[in-house]
């Protein structure tokens, strides 16, 4: 009559010799796929201050400003993302015509204060340098290739 229970116990016993499926985070970090949408990185030299990213952002968490330089081109001055309300939706990187804003595999955003979640241009650029170094790619060539391939696929 209690056959079902014994069967359940059998399942448990069979599991014991098997390998763990859990990860010893934070000692071992997860290996995210290429497309993973983590915290942004920003390349100030690429940005043309077109404001498209700030306009498309559904939570309006990007604020930026730029000035016109001597070469008549726009240069970015400040670029802030408020990660209190950013939903990591990727729409900003999708519209950016120069790929100045991209997403990385950084995902640990816990902070002690709300103000610390306000990330400025230096922080975002530094995140980009670290990400590129981690990925071992010169600048963002590889990212660029991947994105170009995706874009080609879309057309």
């Amino acid at each position: 009559m209690m056959f079902g229970l014994l069967k359940g116990l059998g399942v448990t016993l069979r599991q014991i010799p098997k390998k763990n499926v859990t990860l010893q985070y934070p000692d071992v970090k997860p290996d995210w796929p290429d497309r993973f949408r983590g915290v942004h990185k920003f390349y100030p030299e690429k940005c043309i201050v077109c404001n498209q990213c700030a306009r498309v952002c559904p939570t309006s968490c990007i604020s930026l400003s730029g000035t016109r330089g001597e070469d008549k081109k726009m240069h970015i001055e400040t670029y802030d993302i408020n990660f209190e309300i950013c939903i990591l939706c990727d729409l900003c990187t999708e519209v950016c015509p120069t790929e100045a804003i991209q997403m990385t595999d950084t995902f640990e955003l816990a902070e002690y204060s709300r103000d610390a979640l306000f990330k400025n241009i230096e922080w975002l650029a530094e995140n980009g340098r670290q990400h590129d170094a981690r990925k071992g790619k010169s600048d963002d060539q590889a990212n660029h290739d991947a994105k170009a391939a995706d874009k080609a696929g879309e057309q």
Binding site: P33, R35, F36, R37, L88, C89, D90, M103
Partner: peptide, 10 residues
């Protein structure tokens, strides 16, 4: 789904 879309839930 993470691999195809870049996120685990959203």
């Amino acid at each position: 789904l993470n691999e195809i879309s870049g996120a685990r839930l959203t």
